[in-house]
Design a protein around this nucleic acid. Structure first.
Lengths: 134, 134
DNA sequence: ATCCTTTTTGTCCGTATTTACGATTTCGTA
DNA sequence: TACGAAATCGTAAATACGGACAAAAAGGAT
């Protein structure tokens, strides 16, 4: 128990061997705050393989999900939050019908290693076992 | 756009190069369902460096957190859920006052690579930048 | 007999998150 | 002119989530 430590451990993280002395906020908590909620992580998951439009994202959220489609209202809010935090960027084309593309921005790309770790974990089937989604 | 694909991409994930054909549920969604909420990830973070007792965990959640302590009621609920899902294991010692130790179980250990990725991400300060926690 | 510690649970309540539903904008098309 | 597609937002209802509070068990200490 050192005086200064984050949830990830003392000055030097056991998990990574990295010096965490300069970090104030637990990364795990922050991660939850940033991509917590029902859809944000899934949205980034969809965007990781390329830009997508509003409607496309909505439809993609059905694949691999638990059935219910996201309502446009919420997709709009989620995207706006992700944009405000620099995780995704928005590109509107002045055509009719309106066309808006979303893609991963810098802060979003920075999350890809985490996403990859999640996918690797998922590839073992552990998640389906835990949730009994055989 | 193949017929069978998860949110992580088509049959073979771009992100990891792994074959995902046998996976039904998007790992990202499952991850949220399993360790979503305010405390679960943080609890695993605390346990990753060794067993801890009920009270210890509660106190540890203050470090690196956003100030407020978790109430015993909630800590109890969270731990029970994590236990039911096989992420942590519970060991009660028949002493007075009661002593109960929690530690990572198999399914919890399987999450460590993800936790490590989150800590590495946090070590860059990206999370504090996004949340403006200068 | 009463208090203490540690862990756990029951019940109620307030807030935050999600949803449903509709309105709005824009300009090509029928 | 009326309609349609795509994206977005306003408002109110429904649900989930986190929190407050007190109580219970269990035996040693005062």
């Amino acid at each position: 128990m050192t005086a200064m430590e984050t949830c990830s451990g003392p000055a030097v993280s056991h998990l990574t061997g990295l010096d965490m002395r300069h970090i104030r906020l637990c990364p795990a908590i922050a991660f939850n705050q940033i991509v917590g909620g029902r859809y944000k992580l899934h949205i980034l998951c969809v965007l990781h393989r390329g830009p997508a439009r509003f409607g496309e994202i909505g439809r993609s959220l059905l694949h691999g999900g638990l059935g219910k489609p996201i309502t446009p209202r919420i997709l709009s809010r989620e995207l706006k939050e992700l944009e405000e935090r620099g995780l995704v960027s928005r590109h509107a084309y002045p055509v009719v019908p309106k066309k808006v593309e979303y893609r991963l921005a810098a802060q979003g790309e920075a999350l890809l290693p985490i996403l990859a770790a999640i996918v690797r974990w998922g590839a073992t089937g552990a998640h389906e076992q835990i949730l009994k989604v055989a």
